[in-house]
Design a protein around this nucleic acid. Structure first.
Lengths: 225, 225
DNA sequence: TTTAATAGTGAGTACTCACTCATTTTTAGG
DNA sequence: CCTAAAAATGAGTGAGTACTCACTATTAAA
């Protein structure tokens, strides 16, 4: 696991490769590059058009020749970055883990998946924060995020759940409820580790916390008679 | 359930009762009242000091005689509101449900709790949004929220989990992991209903979704041999 | 070479904001 | 009733913001 480039590296490479494509002018490209850089490090609201212009080595007016508003830059920038960088980056390891299906039990898949996701969030806390922030404030970005990343994860998970249910490894349950339970457990792990209860969480290792979570998800909290 | 006053009403009453207490001046009180009203309806960032002054029937300068900055008002306002209004309001029904322990199985408690929380969020979507927003941006508010509401919920849940585990109704598991699982499932329900997947969620009633969630939480997703 | 379109400029516009301070009003003590 | 301290005022300040526009430079076709 942990194969491939970091998000930071992927982003920079993407910014570089903006050269090749399309009939963008020199200036237009540097505006995009500057915007990506600034939005990714400080967030949309904290980046002023004056700052973007300075970073891009361009007059402020030039920005508005190519984009009709500041928000226009955001939308022009976020969609391709999300589709070409963020989504593959987020899903890369998930696919890899799911593809090792044959060798792994469902519990092992969950264990690997959760640990991998915790590492991913820990290594990209700043970007996660900023992405959530933008998703919170801008409907369009939230929609884009949901219709790309979320839908694809849902699709992948649905397939896996179906296979494992048919194989008799999982109980016959509503697929969407199972998916929600799996994702909820992950969100809970991330939230408790990073936001609500970091001290309590750290009393045991990530592996132990993940193991307890997977155990509960698989077998429930109730005692059987 | 759904007993007692709404959050809106509780807030207004609290604002009124500011009269009685402490050595606040007339003006100071109306600044607080106006701030509570505006912050609660529009959020901190969207409420200007000019607006607060106007609403309070006070000159803008008077605000800065009593509070050294705008953020100072926020901190002075949020702490008492959180402690005296929000926390009791949020916990009221939870206590009530937990106190009916003797009559209810753990599954029934979860079912009632989740349905009650879904109603609460649905009825107070705007305030939930604003509170989350402020918690996202202001560390102090996040800390206050965690050290009041969250800690108390955790305490209540820990007691219930302990009782039910000793009674043999729950498996002997790490208490914090069980709590996290319970809360994660709730967060998942709220998130899927309101943010990520409202259409898919609405294909079944809230009751059905809650029932599926409780089933999974109690008995897990794995098939037993 | 002229012309016409496009790209780029940066000072300027019109605005909002939190915060200040010289002035006025209110209050209280002698 | 006078006066001095305290409280309150609101126009003013300066730093910010996104965005405009009259103008210049560059390019490409006629």
């Amino acid at each position: 696991m942990d194969s491939g480039k970091s998000f930071e590296e992927s982003l920079l490479q993407f910014v570089e490769e903006l050269k090749d494509e399309s009939e963008m002018t020199e200036k237009q490209r540097s505006i995009m590059q500057a915007s990506i850089k600034l939005f990714a490090t400080k967030g949309f609201h904290a980046s002023s058009t004056a700052e973007i212009a300075k970073e891009a080595g361009v007059a402020e007016g030039t920005i508005f020749r190519h984009y009709k508003s500041k928000k226009d830059i955001l939308l022009a920038v976020v969609a391709p970055v999300l589709v070409k960088i963020a989504t593959p980056f987020i899903l890369r390891d998930v696919r890899e883990i799911f593809n090792r299906q044959k060798e792994l039990s469902f519990g092992e898949i969950l264990q690997e998946l959760y640990q991998n996701r915790l590492s991913l969030v820990a290594a990209n806390e700043k970007h996660v924060r900023i992405l959530l922030q933008e998703a919170f404030f801008h409907d369009e970005i939230r929609e884009t995020l949901l219709s790309t990343v979320f839908q694809e994860i849902k699709r992948l998970a649905a397939q896996l759940i179906k296979d494992r249910t048919e194989a008799g490894e999982l109980r016959p349950l509503p697929s969407d409820a199972v998916f929600r339970a799996i994702l909820s457990s992950l969100i809970g792990l991330v939230l408790f580790k990073h936001v609500t209860d970091p001290d309590e969480f750290a009393k045991r290792t990530d592996e132990e916390q993940v193991a307890a979570t997977v155990d509960i998800l698989l077998y429930g909290i109730a005692n059987r008679p």
